[in-house]
């Protein structure tokens, strides 16, 4: 009476069941391996570098945008021109210049020109130009295009992780009417 029950217990998986099971397991292993590789290996480093760089670049860009928005006038580039540096009068009529300087260490390690964006401020009261301050690193390209003295198009490419990414922003100066209108 117990023999049929024992035979049933001994019955193994069919070939189809095995193949399906193996396929599911294979996919799970592959997913797990990819996730592990992503967050523990070189890719994780590249990804986090890139994310951090993007966040930092965005912060730097916002910082520059805010200073520009409060500015009075774009001095260089002249309307209709594109150049890799920017001169503008800030809200106190100090003259600021944003420009690129080659980063020798990163240029050597990346085997391509990598720049830093710096800013110098000339205090109009004292006539003294201060030391450059760092705005952005990992810059590959930075162009400023002007169509009027009250707005500037900024296009920027940065190198992060294993690739490049770009930022583009049109910044309008909000205080450009200040000097035109006698208070």
């Amino acid at each position: 009476m117990k023999a049929p029950a024992i035979r049933e217990l001994r019955r193994a998986f069919t070939l189809v069941e095995l193949l399906i099971g193996l396929a599911i397991l294979g996919m799970l292993f592959a997913t797990g391996f990819k996730a592990w590789q992503l967050f523990s290996g070189q890719q994780a480093e590249n990804l986090s570098k890139r994310l951090i760089l993007q966040m930092e670049a965005r912060k730097a860009f916002l910082n520059l945008s805010k200073q520009l928005q409060e500015g009075i006038e774009i001095v260089s580039p002249r309307p209709g021109t594109t150049i890799p540096y920017l001169v503008f009068k800030d809200y106190l009529n100090n003259v600021r210049m944003v420009y690129l300087e080659e980063d020798p260490v990163r240029t050597r390690s990346e085997k391509r020109p990598i720049y830093r964006a710096l800013m110098v401020i000339r205090d109009s009261t004292s006539g003294i130009t201060g030391q450059p301050s760092l705005l952005m690193e990992h810059v590959v390209k930075l162009n400023f295009t002007s169509h009027s003295t009250s707005g500037i198009l900024v296009t920027c490419t940065l190198h992060g992780g294993s690739g490049d990414f770009g930022l583009i922003n049109f910044i309008r100066l909000q205080n450009s009417a200040t000097e035109d209108e006698p208070n």
């Binding site: 890799p84 300087e101 720049y115």
Partner: peptide, 15 residues
């Protein structure tokens, strides 16, 4: 003219 740093490798032409 601005009195900024004279040394350093600057980017002079547009990209």
């Amino acid at each position: 003219k601005l009195g900024g740093p004279a040394d350093g490798v600057f980017v002079a032409g547009p990209f």
